[in-house]
């Protein structure tokens, strides 16, 4: 077993997600590869689509001979085509994702690890549904995975995540827009990040993703201490991504901090709703399987 397998594919999480999967919001042309998802193309599946008059050059094997017998005219019998879904896993590996807790010696899970677990879980159910997925790291160090399916891709996903490291100064909105041209086939984009960027930049990125024909699932991952400023006394805050340091009396600003966080989250939710995307806020330490299962069930049904 690969070193990262056990870390990212927790059986409990996968059990919670059993039977679920990602869906497109509408029928899409997934290309020539056969899969489990409806395709706008007519293909060779067992499902009947409609009839059309025969024109020279059509495959005579598709002629509906029973109609010809009754009407003496040639009609072709069209069947639905089925295609595969492509899931793009975009994982934020910026420096801010390397935060676990103020007490660095506490051994708490970092936001990046939690984000990787979420991406791995969604990649697993995608591949398990005979679809294909890819992995792209936004910032940090590591390597990306091209689109592929099957068990080898699952192993490659675990390997790629285990070798990735967060770091550097990465603006998530710009990073998404930068990676967008590489997503050549429409699919479901899963963005796992803390989304610590300007709301306008994120809105632009979401809009461009949707305009490119992708469906979008946004997972925001924050540490518990980020959601509530629980420090006391005068504290010097140094930015994880090179922001200028700030020194303040924490108690005096805790309330304003919370209000700013709520306002930012609200902006993100409205942005996703406006663009027909899904938003899920996660806090490190929450039961990932149950939260994802509940969200997928809500978004895509059973």
């Amino acid at each position: 077993m690969l070193p990262g397998w056990k870390k990212y594919f927790d059986p409990k999480i996968l059990a919670d997600l059993s039977g679920l999967g990602l869906r497109r919001s509408q029928i899409f042309d997934g290309g020539p590869l056969a899969g489990a998802h409806h395709s706008p193309r007519h293909g060779h599946s067992v499902e009947f689509a409609d009839h059309r008059p025969y024109v020279p050059g059509d495959d005579v094997r598709s002629v509906d001979w029973k109609i010809f017998a009754r009407t003496d005219r040639y009609f072709l019998r069209n069947r639905e085509d089925e295609t595969t879904l492509i899931c793009y896993l975009l994982v934020d590996a910026s420096g801010s994702m390397d935060f676990a807790a103020i007490d660095a010696a506490s051994g708490a899970t970092t936001k990046f690890d939690y984000a990787c677990q979420a991406a791995a879980a969604l990649g697993f159910i995608t591949l398990d549904n005979q679809d294909r997925c890819s992995l792209r790291l936004l910032g940090g160090t590591g390597y990306d995975l091209p689109i592929a399916g099957g068990a080898p891709q699952l192993e490659a996903l675990a390997e790629a995540l285990s070798r990735s490291r967060p770091g550097g100064d990465t603006r998530i909105g710009a990073a998404v827009r930068q990676v967008l041209p590489q997503l050549d086939r429409p699919g479901v984009v899963v963005l796992v990040s803390d989304l610590l960027d300007e709301p306008e930049s994120i809105d632009t990125a979401v809009a461009q993703l949707r305009a490119a024909g992708h469906d979008l699932l946004v997972l925001q991952v924050l540490a518990p201490e980020e959601r509530g400023l629980t420090l006391a006394g005068t504290t010097r805050f140094e930015g994880a991504e090179g922001e200028p340091a700030i020194e303040l009396q924490v108690e005096a600003f805790a309330q304003a901090y919370q209000q700013a966080l709520y306002a930012f989250t609200d902006q993100l939710v409205q942005c996703c709703q406006r663009h027909g995307s899904h938003f899920l806020g996660l806090t490190v330490g929450e039961p990932l399987g149950k939260r994802l299962a509940a969200a997928l069930h809500q978004y895509y049904g059973g």
């Binding site: 801010s96 936001k111 803390d194 924050l222 805050f237 922001e243 303040l248 600003f253 700013a260």
Partner: peptide, 25 residues
């Protein structure tokens, strides 16, 4: 002395602190 006696932390969510600072300083 209290102003000098401070702790230093690395903080990811600086943008919220900046907003709070602008509002309440």
């Amino acid at each position: 002395l209290n102003r000098r006696r401070r702790r230093t932390v690395t903080w990811p969510a600086m943008q919220f602190l900046l907003v709070a600072l602008q509002q309440r300083t």
